[in-house]
Structures are given as C-alpha cells and as structure tokens.
Design a protein around this nucleic acid. Structure first.
Lengths: 148, 148
DNA sequence: AACCAACGTTGGCTCGACCAACGTAACACG
DNA sequence: CGTGTTACGTTGGTCGAGCCAACGTTGGTT
C-alpha cells in the first residue's frame, strides 16, 4: 500500500510506480538544491567519466535530446562549470569539457544526491537497494536511450 | 549499461533510473494512446476500486494535488466518463463517480497499459517483474503521497 | 459570533520530454 | 567536381505534470 492505498490496477504497473518514485526523488531533491541541478549533475558526471564530449554525445549517453542538452550546457557554461569550444577536427561539433570548478560542483551535488538517495530508499536495506538497482538497470537494457 | 553506457554516478541513483524507466513508459504509452490517458486511467481505477470519491480524496490516494485532479475530472466529465455532483452532506465536496462508459474506457486503457508494461519490462522474467514491483512498493511505504 | 480548516476552482510558474525548422559543416557518391 | 544526404548546434514552441498562491464557499470549533 502506497499510503492510503493506491488502486491495484496502478500498483501493478511498473511505469506508474517508477513514476511515483521518481517524483518523490525530485521532491526530496528540490528540498536540498535547485531542481535544475539534477541535469547539471548528470552532464557533469558524464564529462567526468568519459572526458570531453560533444553535446550530441552527451545526449546519447544520458538519454537527453540535444535540445535540452544545449540549455544545460549553456547554463553550466554561464556558471563556469564547463568549457565549450568548437572541435577543430569537425567544426559542427562543440567539445564540452568540465572545469575544475565543475568537478568540484559535481562532488558537492553528489554528496547531496546521496542524502536524497538515502532518504528515498529508507525502507530498503542494502541488499534490496542493490537488487532494485540491478532490476532497473536490466529493465533499461535493450531500450533505446532516445525517442524515435 | 543503459545503452552506450550511463555514468556510474547516475547508475547508482535510484531516482535517476526510475526517472528513465518512467520516461520510457510514457514514451511507449504515447505510442498507443493519448498521453493524458495516463491520469484518466489512474482516476478511473481509483473510482472503480473505491467507489465514489471526492476530488480531494482522489488526490490523496493517487498522490496528485487537487489542482490537477480538477483538470482530470473536468476532462473525464466532458467525455462522459464520470459524473460529478456536490455532496449533499458536505456541500464543499464534489462526489465523483465513474459512469458505465467510464468503466468501459478503464478496461480499454488497462488492456493498452498491459501491452506497454510488457514492452517496458521485456528484459525481465515473471519473477523479476514481481520482485521489482515489490521493491518499488516497499520504497514508497512511509513516504507521503503528497508534497509538504 | 468569531475563527480556523477543508474543499473546489482559477491562474500562474517551472521542468522535462518532445517536435519543427534553420544554417553550417562534413561526407558519400555519381 | 558538384550534389544530395546526414549530423550538429541552435532557436522557438507545445504539452503534461508537479508545484505555489489566492479566492470564495462551507463546515467545524471554541
């Protein structure tokens, strides 16, 4: 039972439940940081792990479309968290790289994200959390990160 | 690995993963029916399972705020899927009840939802699906269905 | 009688997912 | 060599969902 109890028809739908968990996560996130930090965090994490990326590549890896990536990158740039320059080898591309300040910001956001995570999964023990993680990951396999 | 591979920092966050699964669900849903049908489905499911409800109660049970409930109920009313009348016992309340057509519509939507569910969880076998369901449900326990 | 709380309703805000279109640039192929 | 196709980044806009704020009505409290 979710709280006062959600209808069975809904409790059986993974898309509904994940939606509620996701919303809850956003709510808890918003309590600790500007909500937009979520996308910033994602992009910075990608840059940290993979190094310089073009905007299109960022979108592909994170499942964001290039429209939104543009906005996020612009915001990160305004805050000095990334650097953006055109790829000399392919002048259509923008090479995006995290700055020192960006990496610092990433670590700050990560700490907050961990707190949110903990609060969100409060009802689950360590094993269950890992199981959930694996099941969600497996669910995602085979599905395109992008629309059609 | 999600697809080309999402950063580890993100793969470890349940809120991120649930968000992606949820988005995927919305995408698959939109391929089969108008996206707004999701809320309609939820409200109709609540009315079917609990009988007549006030708008505020609907919101509480589904985790929607009364603003959006109002819009959904209005839409359902326009389509003849519910009936709305003021509660004679408490004239602040609107009693919302599903009509025959509404229940029929609910069953149609449910069939489509099952297809989406199947496609969404294609990578999971029956046991894993049940496990996922239970873990998500457990995650939700103890969290208020509503904001602050 | 005065006050407070709940309800429905309206209007507005933000965020994220999406679609459409444009100009630029790289590439493939005849 | 040109020509068409494709990929990029960018701008502008739509839609759904989650929120907040405010109002008038109504019910309960004290």
């Amino acid at each position: 039972m979710t709280d006062p109890g959600a209808p069975v028809r809904l409790r059986k739908l993974a898309s509904w439940q994940t939606g509620r968990v996701s919303t809850l996560g956003a709510r808890l996130t918003a309590a600790r940081m500007p909500l937009e930090s979520r996308s910033d965090f994602a992009v910075l994490a990608a840059l940290e792990e993979y190094g310089e990326l073009s905007q299109a590549e960022i979108g592909r890896r994170l499942g964001l479309d290039r429209n939104n990536v543009n906005g996020i990158v612009t915001r990160l740039d305004d805050h000095g968290h990334i650097e953006r320059r055109t790829d000399p080898a392919d002048r259509r591309r923008n090479i995006v790289a995290a700055t020192e300040a960006g990496l610092r910001h990433l670590r700050e956001l990560d700490a907050l994200a961990q707190q949110v995570q903990d609060e969100l999964l409060a009802a689950l023990d360590a094993d269950e959390r890992e199981q959930l993680r694996l099941l969600l990951e497996k669910t995602l396999t085979g599905h395109p990160a992008q629309p059609a």
